[in-house]
Nucleic acid binder design. Sequence first.
DNA 1: AATGAATGAGAATTCATTCAT
DNA 2: CATGAATGAATTCTCATTCAT
Lengths: 207, 207, 207, 207
Amino acid sequence: MRKIKTKIKNPDLVEKRRNQISQAALALFREKGFHATSMRTICQKAKVNLGSFYDYFGSKEDILVHLYKEIMNRKLHWAPADGKPADFKDIEDLLRLSMSNAWSRDNNAIQLLYQETTSLDKKTRKEVFQIESNFVKWVAEKFREGLSLPSVSTELELAANMLVYVNAFIPLRGWNMSHIKQEEILDFAVGMFMTILKALSQREAIR
Amino acid sequence: MRKIKTKIKNPDLVEKRRNQISQAALALFREKGFHATSMRTICQKAKVNLGSFYDYFGSKEDILVHLYKEIMNRKLHWAPADGKPADFKDIEDLLRLSMSNAWSRDNNAIQLLYQETTSLDKKTRKEVFQIESNFVKWVAEKFREGLSLPSVSTELELAANMLVYVNAFIPLRGWNMSHIKQEEILDFAVGMFMTILKALSQREAIR
Amino acid sequence: MRKIKTKIKNPDLVEKRRNQISQAALALFREKGFHATSMRTICQKAKVNLGSFYDYFGSKEDILVHLYKEIMNRKLHWAPADGKPADFKDIEDLLRLSMSNAWSRDNNAIQLLYQETTSLDKKTRKEVFQIESNFVKWVAEKFREGLSLPSVSTELELAANMLVYVNAFIPLRGWNMSHIKQEEILDFAVGMFMTILKALSQREAIR
Amino acid sequence: MRKIKTKIKNPDLVEKRRNQISQAALALFREKGFHATSMRTICQKAKVNLGSFYDYFGSKEDILVHLYKEIMNRKLHWAPADGKPADFKDIEDLLRLSMSNAWSRDNNAIQLLYQETTSLDKKTRKEVFQIESNFVKWVAEKFREGLSLPSVSTELELAANMLVYVNAFIPLRGWNMSHIKQEEILDFAVGMFMTILKALSQREAIR
DNA sequence: AATGAATGAGAATTCATTCAT
DNA sequence: CATGAATGAATTCTCATTCAT
């Protein structure tokens, strides 16, 4: 993923300031959208000088890139990425882990990811899509393993896609379900996926 | 939903021009986002004079409002709203109908609905949410009827929510599944929901 | 030469506003230089709205392009360019005409031309140089005709170059000669060139 | 000429750093102009810390002042200035010396002098003009001596002016004559001035 | 009802300069 | 004496909207 330019030499400071800024920006972007949020407002909220901003980022768009990188990194907490497999017992555990992960913590950041796709330049957008795509493949593979199937069928791939979708959009649509407990939604979703996967597994077995 | 102001007296002309403009805008909004699209560009594409625009709409935001109204109206083709119930045999038919509807036709408009939520002012946004919410309730009720259940359980409501989600987001995320046929995805999704609903139905029966 | 973009449809108005703006800019550029002059200042002086400026020009640099075009057009009053040869009896007449032309009228504009070469983007700069170069060739040819020589020697070309130089820079360096009458300087310069050309002519004759 | 302030006590270091910086700046100014060149770029090229710059110069403009001083000093290699007369046999020698001097060595610096006049504040600009003016007078006096004339006529002064002009601008306009050898141009220019001066001399003799 | 020009607030970004260590 | 981060004013340009005809 594209590297963000900086004029600052101390890498710890760069990290600190970038987070400081991007966290402030995240809240504002979520609320008003990327374009409707001005650099002035962001810097005021982040308590960073407007001029200094450009010492840490190359442009406004770079904030999005930074946020996306962060999201991707955290998502990889339950994905292998650099080889480190996440720790889970079985498929149900995987499902529960991934969901509670996506739904609780990065709420805002993930929502943003899907809100502001159009605000990214084409190249960066493509990269984001690619990472997602790889991730879906990995999930499908986990499903295959967990169900002891010989290969990844189209339907398994679709199920993997669906999981990633649900993880992405449940937080986005929290609005409609505010009267239902988070816990209950989680249970329902896990149950739903288990039902689907079992059904798939049986169908495959018959063939 | 808030009425859009106009200075023009001929209502047919108003309708015609508004559609002309909002269709041009829709394509542009989807591609570049609401804020990144200028009024100039919209009017050029719509072949409407930039000055005339403000005879038919009160502001740029009004285009969104107009589009949302339209979307809602079409959604109600398979929902009752003004009393006209859509025509379907059973739940499977309902699922298939709703999905092929959402996935094929309003692709762009629905995607926009979820992209540009933040570009609406709070009041309008709330109205959109409310309509959605009512719609979910209606779907849940249809599920209850189709499954011959005595009441709408939380899980049924969640399932209804999930359907609306999936309908909204499948088109948004078409990107990851471009190698799979639309038909196959539809079959999978319908099958998935049937599995879930049947499982729910059985569980309820046991109680 | 590159066309300047405009959003205005009435071409007379475009011409009028562009001149209005570029004349104000010319004075300021000459005084403080291109970069040190802000768009705000230019528009204030030109009594044009800062926003409107961009209806008539595409960018700040376009003002320079416009000015250069104007200069070139006037220079061609005594050059053929599009076929119309300027009217003069003999070489001495040509010299006097060209000089009084360059020294009196376009004073400011010509000075600017040589001051702000670096402020033009490469492509435009190249075009300006090319026009100059062609012009020098035309002058050399006139010299050849006037002296009834068979061909343009290197020295004749150098003399032509020198004339164009002198015409360009006498106004630029008026400062050092402010105590001498314009008339006297003109006489001296014409005499100087006549002396040079005659000497050249004789030398060629001997060969 | 105005003294440039410094906070540094070691004068050798000051001299060294100032040259280091101004040489880097010279190249950049010539290429992009004074205002379009940023302090950051200059200091990067000069390999001097951006903060340190202000220990050796008071401001960006001071670089220009420093460069102008240097130019003036070198020009005085063939002028008396601090009393040291340059060494030449006759007028032709003087002409050739001055030209090859101006055309070869300080190419960049002299061009800059005339490019960036407007970037100097008024006071400094006036000083530069004054030095030039004195220099022209000195050249005129040398002409008078060489031609054994009783006094400096207006025409002689104009000829001196012309020499200084030509020396200043030949390098600036090298562009149009790139196909002709430097040597040939030099010969032509020397010949040209000799012709003019001889003609002047004869005319004066007749009076 | 349509046209096209005008308006002015606000956007992102750059830059010379200063300051603390 | 050097370093590198901070400052904030200024700059070019865009845009939704209004106005006069």
